[in-house]
Write a protein that binds this DNA or RNA. Structure first.
Lengths: 198, 198
DNA sequence: ACGTCTCTTCAAGAAAATTTGAACGAACTG
DNA sequence: CAGTTCGTTCAAATTTTCTTGAAGAGACGT
């Protein structure tokens, strides 16, 4: 990945002095975004736009980051869908111009709302569903296995409680309200303390 | 991925009734973990252990989840490194037995501490470094470009502030203290208020 | 000390994802 | 209404990641 490395070639040596700093910052955000489950180029492109005083064209972005126009189009499209970048236009110009949404908080919130919250919700539903299946199976099982099923029930209800609490906490985050992680800690293992071996 | 689907074959039809529920729950956790940047099997294996009343062998895990022993070994090793699973042994037996760490809060905390915190820290350092490079370049740039550099400086310092605040908030989370997301919101765009759409 | 049983490591193969160039289509210009 | 200029989409190609079977290392019992 010649992202930062390939900066002093191409268009002669007319690279501005600050380009290096810009690319380093973009790469840092790219790593962050990639880690967070987005395309790495989304972070890089957003950062270039965020640092730029004016909106930029796809061509300028492709040139700056040494990407193909299709790569730019793809990531840019996704950024627009997430509301992280906006299209704008200029009187004379035919090209599309893109500008970064500058409120990082707004972006964070949107992602937690649209993505993380759904994810947790789905997990919570699945756990609840597994609990239901277990209840249903319980009477049809040998007394010997009933012990086992009962253990699973307790554990599953713990997982349910955890995910539901997680859901609530992320909800609070999205709402910008205070979050108390203690709520999660309290669910943990108040009674069964079987694991004290090692 | 025949994870849940492939449950009623293999070892005759002796699958217990609750196996289905167990596998569903394991898959839910697998999705969560995969989304969170871990191997998907880590979540699945951990869940099987978490739901099990006794510690299990690698063979039992491989059988339950229909995985090769090497896949189990790999994910299990990583789970042990993260402290999510502990090895235990039994008097007569030669095999290793594995038991889940049951405190989810403890696990969450450890991951945020070891992984997310470092990630943010590195990003923060890179932003700070980019700022430094910019300061250094500033005097060597045409007055025309100085405007540009100054804009970048403002934006970069915003990114720095955001990551540093993020670092602080994650630190609070790890410490189990209250978190105020408002700290992030306040950094956003106090002056330029160009984006007040949705 | 040898053979056996386990777990781990490794390299080859498979699967999944990213990337790219080209084709398509829309929108403007002359 | 042609001729351009852009932007997007698509499928092939590449890279990366995951999976697996086999070989290797360690430990135990005889």
């Amino acid at each position: 990945m010649p992202s930062v490395a390939a900066k002093q070639e191409e268009s002669s040596n007319s690279e501005p002095l600050w380009r290096e700093a810009e690319l380093h910052a973009a790469d840092a955000m790219g790593r962050l975004m990639e880690f967070w489950g987005f395309r790495r180029h989304m972070g890089r492109i957003w950062t270039i736009l965020y640092l730029s005083p004016e909106a930029m064209t796809t061509a300028a972005l492709a040139e700056t980051l040494q990407l193909s126009s299709s790569a730019v189009s793809l990531s840019l499209g996704e950024l627009v869908r997430w509301g992280a970048v906006r299209k704008t236009w200029r009187p004379g110009e035919r090209k599309d111009f893109y500008a970064a949404e500058t409120s990082v908080w707004k972006l964070l919130r949107r992602v937690y709302e649209r993505r993380e919250l759904n994810l947790i919700r789905e997990a919570a539903e699945t756990f609840a569903d597994a609990q239901r299946r277990l209840e249903e199976a319980r009477p049809r099982v040998t007394p010997n296995e009933r012990r086992r099923v009962d253990h699973m029930r307790k554990r599953l209800s713990r997982l349910s409680a955890l995910t539901k609490t997680g859901e609530r906490l992320v909800g609070l985050l999205v709402a910008g309200r205070m979050i108390d992680p203690g709520a999660l800690r309290e669910i943990d293992d108040p009674q069964f303390d079987e694991g004290r071996d090692s």
